[in-house]
């Protein structure tokens, strides 16, 4: 169950709208919006392949300029809460 932290660079004017558009609980969670309009988001997925397709779909969203992965964890994790 990979989890990654990404920085989404987008056109500043599109940032607010993208924040709404991209946020899908359990898949993509936008955690921060930065001064320059960049978004910080956490992606959860079932497999690395799945994650690739999520990132690709973010990249393909209008207004998104670049998606950079800053953190990636794919250890096999079990919820112990």
């Amino acid at each position: 169950m990979p989890i990654s932290g990404v920085v989404i660079t987008c056109r500043p004017e599109a940032s607010r709208e993208l924040c709404r558009q991209l946020d899908q609980p359990g898949v993509v969670e936008v955690t921060h919006t930065l001064e320059d309009g960049s978004l910080v988001a956490v992606i959860e997925s079932s497999s690395v392949d799945d994650e690739v397709s999520v990132v690709k779909s973010i990249m393909a969203t209008a207004g998104v300029l670049d998606v950079r992965i800053a953190y990636h964890n794919f250890e096999d994790i079990a919820d112990r809460a």
């Binding site: 990654s4 932290g5 921060h32 956490v42 800053a70 953190y71 809460a81």
Partner: peptide, 23 residues
Amino acid sequence: MALSRRDFLKASAAAAALAAATG
């Protein structure tokens, strides 16, 4: 309420991305 391991990882992911984005 204890923080789940998954929540912890998510928080780490967000923190790392934030650090990368803001330098």
